[in-house]
Design a binder for these strands. Structure first.
Length: 316
DNA sequence: ATCCAGGGTAATT
DNA sequence: AATTACCATGGA
């Protein structure tokens, strides 16, 4: 049993994947990335283009939880080969070939994206972290128990992770279970800066904790059925439902359309006249193939970090 | 200061 | 069947 494991990879850009707006708890620490996954503290580092090193805080024989999370069994080349050959996708893939999808824990993913509406990614990160600090369980990097978080744990230095981990290397929190959120009050949730989303999160937590909404089933039923199931939650529309299905349920045809992707589809595929949302949804469902969700992630990442619309490229 | 952010909902046109 | 206001909050 080891606390370190090495995973051979090909076309896996760890940094791009962990910062592409699908997961919100990864923080840079030196050249590595730290988060809590499946209740365990874990540090990941791309030690070479074809190797990812994982370090955990307790001797571990079974790494399947991490292999699943990183989707290490996915055949990335084959997935890219299913894409239609068009210029926007070609440019997006050329910009970052190793962008991957993760398979996160469904409840964490659902809760996080309920908090995402009309928020910037940095804001979502802060909100999620605050939620974990208030309602999650403290765990230690070194595997030792963390008896009591410091009194000011609610705002540990703005989450500047590098400095923070150097000073308090052991302080991390699990993502709170649905039952824990359901047992809180809406006021306590609002104190985590989630505003009007507190009511939505509470409702979803009760549905999940009460067994009324079975997240584990969402990956095994047709996409449209899974989507409808998630949209029973107040505050969860098609976009958030598709995010949860794509980022945590392995529904690879799910295609969340946010403001960035909508602009991309509009400008790149319907430059002449304005296409309605329903038109874009139909186009996405028919044009990009069985791995449409990955294509969506490529367009999103490209537009946000280097595409023609990016500020650094002085474009409009 | 004003605008906008990985939206959703209910109220108006 | 389409727009519009509103929801809290913080960063740009």
């Amino acid at each position: 049993m080891e606390t370190t494991a090495h995973f051979p990879v090909r076309d896996y850009d760890l940094a791009a994947t962990l910062t592409s707006g699908q997961a919100f708890r990864w923080r840079p620490v030196g050249g590595a990335w730290v988060a809590v996954v499946h209740g365990r503290w874990v540090q990941l580092e791309q030690v070479a283009p074809d190797y990812i090193r994982a370090t955990v805080n307790a001797p571990t024989a079974d790494w399947s939880w991490l292999q699943s999370y990183l989707r290490l069994d996915a055949n990335h080349q084959r997935m890219l080969a299913t894409f239609p050959v068009d210029e926007p996708l070609r440019a997006a893939i050329a910009h970052c070939r190793g962008l991957r999808l993760l398979r996160q824990e469904p409840w964490e993913c659902l809760a996080s994206f309920i908090l995402s509406s009309t928020k910037q990614i940095v804001q979502i990160q802060q909100c999620v972290e605050l939620l974990c600090e208030r309602f999650g369980d403290p765990i230690g990097q070194a595997g030792r128990a963390v008896p009591c978080p410091p009194q000011t744990a609610s705002r540990p230095q703005q989450h500047n992770s590098v400095a923070y981990d150097a000073i308090h290397p052991a302080l991390h929190y699990t993502f709170p279970a649905a039952a824990r959120i359901a047992a809180a009050t809406e006021g306590e949730l609002r104190a985590c800066k989630m505003g009007f989303r507190a009511r939505y999160l509470m409702a979803a937590a009760r549905m999940v904790a009460g067994g009324e909404l079975n997240l584990a089933r969402l990956g095994q039923i047709p996409l449209h059925a899974a989507r409808a199931e998630l949209m029973r939650c107040p505050g969860v529309g098609r976009k958030i439902a598709d995010c949860v299905l794509l980022f945590s349920c392995g529904q690879d045809a799910a295609f969340p359309i946010d403001v960035w992707v909508e602009r991309a589809l509009q400008r790149l595929y319907f430059p002449k006249r304005r296409a309605r949302r329903a038109r874009l949804e139909h186009f996405a469902a028919t044009h990009f193939g069985p791995h449409a969700g990955l294509a969506q992630q490529y367009l999103f990442h490209y537009l946000r970090t280097g595409g023609p619309d990016h500020p650094k490229n002085h474009a409009r």
